[in-house]
């Protein structure tokens, strides 16, 4: 198992758990909710950097026949990115800790709060789809972590799928 795959798995696991934690502001308190959400934004940037090659490959081949299988995944990822930005933007607009910390005052509009809740629900649905799309990879990674005795022959298909996927 490559070091990059382990890094990806750890980052994704941490991001997923953080997403769950920040989705409960009454549990964390508002200040932690806001600062942790900002940190989550940073984790998402790192996630995109780690998967940059896939993004570039699929963007270049988006309208070709070979990208048929990746197209839905690509559109879903864009939708997830957009809804994540909507959460961040609406969250900053109703912020009571982060924005005042920087000495800024934003005009308040009550519709931001509603949008924050709506975009959170949309993101949870899209995240469910995102996890489902990658379920095979997640399961195979965990299997290989917890059963390190898997011989190289059975471990190799995941890597071959990875390369194949980059082309499709």
């Amino acid at each position: 198992m490559s070091k990059q795959n382990i890094n990806k798995l750890l980052l994704d696991l941490g991001t997923f758990i953080t997403l769950l934690v920040v989705s409960a502001p009454r549990f964390t308190g508002e200040t932690i909710h806001e600062w942790l959400s900002l940190a989550l934004g940073g984790a998402i940037v790192v996630h995109l950097l780690l998967n940059w090659n896939w993004i570039v490959e699929v963007t270049a081949r988006l309208f070709t026949k070979s990208a048929k299988n990746s197209r839905l995944n690509y559109v879903l990822n864009w939708a997830l990115f957009a809804s994540g930005i909507m959460i961040m933007l609406s969250g900053l607009m109703i912020s009571k800790s982060v924005v005042p910390f920087f000495g800024l005052t934003l005009p308040q509009n009550m519709s931001w709060k509603e949008l924050h809740e709506v975009s959170t629900n949309i993101t949870m649905i899209l995240m469910g789809l995102h996890v489902a799309q990658h379920w095979n990879w997640i399961v195979s990674m965990f299997k290989r972590i917890f059963t390190p005795s898997i011989p190289a022959q059975t471990a190799s298909p995941v890597l071959s799928i990875q390369r194949k996927d980059a082309r499709t």
């Binding site: 990806k8 998967n51 896939w54 993004i55 990746s70 990822n77 990658h134 990875q162 194949k164 996927d165």
Partner: peptide, 15 residues
Amino acid sequence: TKYFGRKKPAMPTSL
């Protein structure tokens, strides 16, 4: 996806 027989390949590079 299972019902329609569309096996989704693992996509480690896009996760």
